[in-house]
Amino acid sequence: MIDRLADPTSASWYEASARARIDGLLDAGGFREFVGPEQRRMSPHLPLFDLPRAFDDGMVVGEGILDGRPVLVAAQEGRFMGGAFGEVHGAKLVGLLRAARQRKPAAVLILFDTGGVRLQEANAGETAIAEVMRAIAEVRALGVPVIGLIGGRAGAYGGGGLIAGTCSRLAVSESGRISVSGPEVIETNRGAEEFDSRDRALVWRTMGGKHRRLTGGADAFADDTVAAFRAAALNLIGRAPAFDLATLEAEQARLEQRLARFGDCREATEIWSRLGVNDPAAVPATTASAFDALLSGLGETTHDAR
């Protein structure tokens, strides 16, 4: 685990803690945390389950500077309770987004790392996710970009996947996964024939960063370094779509078209092939730079319909 980054340019985003990600993402020294760990605003519910609590409930929120411009930032700690939304965890993000409505920063950055709702606080977590989505819509309507960064261990699952889909822009790394139901959940409900969760190559083909980027589910692909995510965030802030009828109609058309074009596909490789990828089987093994080159040849994966 990396708590402090010796060399933020090469440090792995996947391995870094929530705090280390913020440290490396923002301009040095400028981060100010809201409701910091010293306030000990921990979950009031976990003791009931005899579970350990974290000082920040797995959510770090605050303000900082990104390339000279003020931003608000939230980071989930995927190793604490799988980064899941509990009452305090969710409320901190809600508060940050409400603050953004008034502060109008250059952007709000959400560093996702979550399995979804924390079951021990399920109703609070689920409601918080709804509040977050409403607050994001409001912030976006004011012209403030909300940028999601996804490359942590826990991915962006469950409600986290829905929040991600609400953001203006998403950057994802290869390890990043975006989905609603996790592979284990699908396997438990539908059997291993439907989804063999131990087939990790299948998991990544179906939900992983490359697939999401190729199909337009994410807008930028980042190498697994803190520096790459910083560059991706900077790039995305500059081209965030508005939140209005035109954007959502375009998204509607985009999603309808996806259904029509790929609705009969069972495998990601079939989709990639139809997108024009010559050697779909080789996609998982390609490096980030080769993948970028591949993307630039496929027009429709980049869009403003979000």
């Binding site: 290869e174 390890s175 131990r198 087939d199 990790r200 190559a201 299948l202 998991v203 990544w204 998982p284």
Partner: peptide, 9 residues
């Protein structure tokens, strides 16, 4: 060529 259970890509 690692077996599938060791992959996360």
């Amino acid at each position: 060529e690692p077996p599938a259970k060791f992959r996360n890509w």
